[in-house]
């Protein structure tokens, strides 16, 4: 039963994709206006949109060709402002992972502390509640001004947006470890550190991983916006550069790559959370 269902689901996905592409193609064709009569000398100076009434939106096939071009040559380097999609993605991933790991190093210990000690939780709660809803991009000007390095600023923004979900989830996971398990540990006279690592951490791990999964999703959302702002390198810059050329084809292919990488990141953490999952 199970395999047949996934086959069916896969086929349904394909049908939906085909329908979507067909609708897109038809939309572009419908937008095609009539060719405009023009002096050939004048027409030579104009774009296809003006002369042939072509739609600004590319056809799916054009986007496909563009995607293929990127996939077949992902690592070319034609100067500081023109690098292959693979290099751009690598820059973005590096920033996201650095910011994310830094955030994990800070959030998990502090989350532990908050989860274990009600006093700390009460004391830190107002700060967390105020900082949490701030859009990470609101930090950008402040970061640029104080850190004075656009690359570090981008990493800082990733850090600040990844830290809250991990912190809150860790605190929640630690606080809700079953009292019986802690009591058992205490009865057996297990030391505090050992209790933390052998009892609390494994018990809270699934919740912590959920926090990390939320964080990486947010971090990947934010990096694109941050790179569009500061420019230079990264997938956000790539999209901005294509937009600068008003190339919708390029922007769409950027979107596809962003989506694919985001999905891979999420899948990786989903796989990791399976490793620490347990049944009671």
């Amino acid at each position: 039963m199970q395999p047949r269902m996934s086959v069916k689901a896969g086929m349904l996905s394909l049908v939906l994709l085909t329908l979507f592409l067909a609708a897109w193609h038809l939309l572009v064709l419908a937008q095609q206006g009539p060719a405009v009569e023009m002096d050939p000398e004048y027409a030579a100076l104009m774009g296809k949109q003006a002369t042939e009434g072509a739609s600004a939106l590319p056809k799916p096939a054009e986007v496909g060709a563009e995607l293929w071009r990127h996939v077949t040559d992902p690592f070319y380097d034609a100067g500081p402002n023109d690098k292959g999609i693979g290099i751009q993605l690598a820059y973005s991933l590096f920033r996201v992972l650095t910011g994310f790991l830094l955030a994990a190093c800070v959030a998990i210990p502090i989350g532990f502390l908050i989860g274990m000690s009600p006093i700390f939780r009460k004391a830190l709660d107002p700060f967390i509640q105020i900082m949490k809803p701030v859009s990470p991009l609101a930090w950008m000007p402040l970061a640029l001004y104080t850190i004075k390095d656009s690359n570090l600023s981008a990493i800082f923004v990733i850090f600040i947006c990844s830290v809250w979900p991990m912190l809150i989830n860790t605190a929640f996971g630690v606080a809700s470890v079953r009292k019986e398990w802690l009591n058992v540990a205490r009865t057996l006279e297990v030391g505090a550190l050992r209790t933390a690592f052998r009892v609390v951490l494994p018990a809270a791990a699934p919740t912590i991983l959920t926090g990390m999964r939320i964080s990486i999703g947010i971090a990947w959302l934010v990096i694109v916006a941050a790179e569009m702002l500061v420019g230079g390198t990264g997938i956000g810059y790539f999209v901005w550069n294509e937009w600068n050329n008003l190339s919708i084809t390029g922007v769409i292919s950027g979107i596809v790559f962003i989506g694919l990488v985001g999905m891979l990141l999420d899948m990786a953490l989903a796989r990791a959370s399976k490793l620490v999952a347990y049944a009671e």
Partner: peptide
Amino acid sequence: VIKTAGWAVSRDKSLAEE
């Protein structure tokens, strides 16, 4: 020569000595 998204960024990156 590094392409920059706009003048505010260009100013900030210049002030930051990038």
